[in-house]
Design a protein around this nucleic acid. Structure first.
Lengths: 224, 224
DNA sequence: TCAAAAGTGTTGTGTGTACACCCATGT
DNA sequence: ACATGGGTGTACACACAACACTTTTGA
């Protein structure tokens, strides 16, 4: 019994029932002018043939973050991308097979890494619009709701947004990224003024020409 | 093996090793013009006689939040106080006895609940200044660092601060609370203007008289 | 009458917002 | 020459920061 003389880690006896522990990784990217989430189709029951957030068991000896990175790499073949812990979900009925607690992470992958990533073989792995999700397994809709909320608020007070862009990008691309995530239009002049005042990007001597209009200056992110 | 065909919850076989799962609850209050954290002294090895954040095992059938509330109640005899999930810590070497993953929560308890709380008997339970901590067990210093950072940032963009105050309080008390947590002086006039403009507190027809000076108006928080 | 904290406004500075036109290009 | 997106500045409103004196009380 966890009480009185037992502060939770006070006794030598670990005779409590233990949950299975997984990490789930919400992987976002920007593609086709849309915010995409990577989902995989389940091949076994429960929720057979239902889409789910990629994840897997944490192995003994791993940190939670290492486990998340491993899952991420297995799904996308990409390392060294932005990853942060999101929240832990442990409702006893979240998995019909038993007690499974999951630590959710979220990752941002830039569109220029996309070639490398996903559907490495005929697996059922697919990018879905974060705004048009299929039916999801377990409590994964709740996790995605939580993730997009976190992503939006982080976008307001940090520079995570750059994680989603290629090394070289135009200001319009950057603005589009913000608009897609925040799901609202931003004023072009104000956006540029704001971003440039932050001193976090540098203009390059390169331009992106595309279509029948003036070429757009390319910028790169200053990672200080 | 968690890979390829195994999305983590795709197989029926849960033949992975499972961690012990605990919740730890960082309980804050304001007392004696200081930010205090409730700690308990461990009675068994490892870290026998070392101070630690109260916590305990999660039981099967409980949500994580229920488990945290149960721990909180066991230590403080108080219910219905502010509680939020903080972060999960799962480094494999954080507990010398084995694999123990903890979901940390933080709670805010108002000083008028304090009579009821803590040291219900001769247990080694004590309020410590968050700024003068003793040597701590496990990775609990890391957890407290994380907690105070979260508390500070939440104070800036939410109204959690009121959770730490009695139902009736003066503006000076409120300001002190902010100053103690943020660990910096605030300007009296600016603070009052700001708080009052938020329309979250109402003046009462009561005054707090204390000492040889003008009595201070009491306010109460509007919980909408 | 004195000490001690309560209470109260104004001004400058910076940040967010609204808004419209010219520029460079490809066809 | 025209359609298309790229690129630029100003004016107003509002939030934040700095700052000092009067009020009320108990001793």
């Amino acid at each position: 019994m966890a009480k009185e003389d037992d502060d939770g880690k006070g006794s030598y006896t670990y005779d409590y029932e233990r949950p299975a522990l997984t990490v789930d990784v919400v992987i976002y990217t920007i593609k086709d002018n849309d915010l995409k989430v990577l989902l995989i189709k389940r091949k076994a029951n429960p929720y057979k043939d239902t889409w789910a957030i990629p994840g897997g068991f944490v192995k003994n000896g791993e940190t939670l973050e290492i486990a998340a990175k491993r899952e991420l790499f297995e799904e996308t073949n990409v390392k060294d991308i932005y990853l942060e812990q999101l929240y832990s979900f442990g409702d006893p009925d979240r998995d019909p097979r038993g007690w499974v607690v999951t630590v959710a992470y979220f990752a941002l992958i830039s569109s220029d890494n996309l070639k490398i990533s996903a559907s490495t073989d005929a697996k059922d792995v697919k990018w879905f619009s974060a705004y048009k999700l299929p039916k999801l397994a377990f409590d994964h809709l709740k996790i995605l709701d939580y993730a997009i909320t976190r992503l939006r608020s982080k976008l307001e007070y940090t520079n995570v947004g750059f994680q989603l862009l290629p090394k070289k990008f135009t200001l319009t691309e950057l603005q589009k990224t913000y608009e897609i995530i925040l799901n609202k239009k931003l004023d072009k002049r104000n956006f540029r003024k704001k971003i440039l005042s932050l001193d976090i990007i540098s203009p390059l001597e390169e331009y992106k020409r595309e279509g029948t209009h003036r070429p757009a200056r390319l910028y790169s992110f200053n990672n200080n």
